[in-house]
Design a protein around this nucleic acid. Structure first.
Length: 309
DNA sequence: AATGGTCAAGTCAGC
DNA sequence: GCTGACTTGACCATT
C-alpha cells in the first residue's frame, strides 16, 4: 500500500499547475509554462520520496490546452528529455502515478464532437505517460458520466465507445464510481464487459452506493485489476461537516481514516487522499498507517521494497 | 499589493 | 434558451 495525495503540495513553493488564459496563448508562453510545471512536478516527487509517499496524481493542467486546437507545439518531442528523466525517476523508485482527466471527458457523450474532444483529451494524457516510459500501472481515471436522463443507455454507450478507443488509451483507462450517477455496481458492470479496472472511491460509495460494506467492495474492485494494471487504486475522503453532502473534508478525519484502514485489512491497494489540505493530511495518514503491514515506502530499484518498520 | 470577476471543455436543474 | 450550480485554483484586469 502506497499513500498519495493529488496534484498539489501546499507546503512547497512549487506549482505544477500553472496556466494562463486562452486569450493570451502563445507558443512561447506555452513552452515556458510546461517547463515550469515539469520542474515543479519533479520537485514534488523528490519531496514525496523523502517523506515516504509512493503514490501521486499528476495535474491535468501540467500541459495546458494540450488537446485544444490552439496548441500547435509538439511538446512530447520538445520536452522528450525532461519527460524521460521524470519517468526514469518514477520507475527507479517504483512510484505509482495516476491522472484524472476532468469531468468534461465523456467517451459516451451523445454528441460525437464531444466524444472526439474527449478522446483527444485522453490521448494527450496517454501520450504524456508514454513519453515518461511508464507501464500500464500508470492509470487514467475517469467517471462514466454522460447520463442524459438514461443511465442504462449511457452505460451501454460507454462500453461501445470503449471498444473503439486506440490501445494506447484503452490499456490505461480506469473507471471510478461517482457520488451521484454511477455506483460501484455500474462500474463493475462496465468492467465485466470491457475488462476495465475499477477504481473504488470510498466516499462516493457512502453517498451513492448500495450500502455494502467497504471490505466487500474492495475485494470486488480488486478482482478487476490485472497484474499489468497494478494494485487496486482507491480514492479516500470524508464529509466536510456542515457542508453539502459530497463536499470533501478540509482536513483528514483521523478516526474515520483509521476505521477505513481497519475495515480494509483484507485487501492491498494504493490510496489517494482527496482531502483539501493535501500533504498535511497525507502525512497524518502515513503516521496512522505506520503499523499497518501493507504500508510500503517508495524505494530504489535495487533495494527491495519492504513494509516500513 | 489586494481584490474579485472570470476562466476551454459538460451536464443538469430551474427559470 | 439561458443561467447558475457543481467545484476549485489561479489568471488577470482593476483598484
Amino acid at each position: 500500500m502506497f499513500i498519495g495525495y493529488p496534484c498539489l503540495n501546499w507546503s512547497m513553493n512549487e506549482r505544477p499547475n500553472r496556466t494562463f488564459r486562452l486569450a493570451s496563448y502563445s507558443d512561447e508562453r506555452f513552452r515556458e509554462t510546461v517547463a515550469m510545471n515539469l520542474r515543479a512536478t519533479e520537485a514534488i516527487l523528490r519531496w514525496n520520496l523523502a517523506e515516504g509517499f509512493g503514490y501521486f496524481r499528476i495535474s491535468s493542467d501540467l500541459i495546458p490546452f494540450a488537446s485544444h486546437p490552439v496548441c500547435a507545439v509538439d511538446w512530447a518531442a520538445e520536452f522528450a528529455d525532461d519527460l524521460a528523466r521524470l519517468g526514469a525517476y518514477i520507475r527507479q523508485h517504483n512510484m505509482r502515478i495516476a491522472m484524472h482527466p476532468d469531468q468534461f471527458t465523456l467517451i459516451n457523450a451523445k454528441d460525437p464532437e464531444i466524444v472526439a474532444r474527449s478522446v483527444k483529451e485522453l490521448a494527450w494524457h496517454a501520450c504524456f505517460l508514454d513519453a515518461m516510459g511508464l507501464d500500464a500501472t500508470a492509470r487514467l481515471q475517469i467517471h462514466v458520466g454522460g447520463v442524459y436522463g438514461d443511465h442504462a443507455a449511457s452505460r451501454e454507450r460507454f462500453v461501445r465507445e470503449f471498444e473503439k478507443l486506440p490501445p494506447a488509451i484503452a490499456h490505461r483507462l480506469t473507471v471510478e464510481n461517482d457520488d451521484r450517477h454511477y455506483s460501484l455496481e455500474d462500474c463493475l458492470w462496465i468492467s465485466d464487459r470491457t475488462g476495465i479496472p475499477v477504481l473504488f472511491d470510498v466516499f462516493h460509495h457512502s453517498l451513492h452506493g448500495d450500502g455494502r460494506p467497504v471490505s466487500d467492495c474492495l475485494k470486488q474492485a480488486a478482482r478487476t485489476w490485472s497484474k499489468k494494471a497494478g494494485r487496486l487504486l482507491v480514492d479516500y475522503s470524508s464529509q466536510q461537516p456542515e457542508k453539502r453532502p459530497g463536499t470533501h473534508a478540509d482536513t483528514l478525519d483521523d478516526s474515520d481514516f483509521s476505521q477505513f484502514l481497519a475495515a480494509s485489512k483484507g485487501t492491498d491497494f494504493d490510496v489517494m487522499l482527496e482531502i483539501k489540505d493535501k500533504e498535511t493530511s497525507a502525512r497524518r495518514a502515513l503516521a496512522l498507517a505506520q503499523s499497518d503491514p501493507r504500508l510500503r515506502k517508495p524505494c530504489g530499484k535495487t533495494e527491495r521494497c519492504k513494509p516500513s518498520r
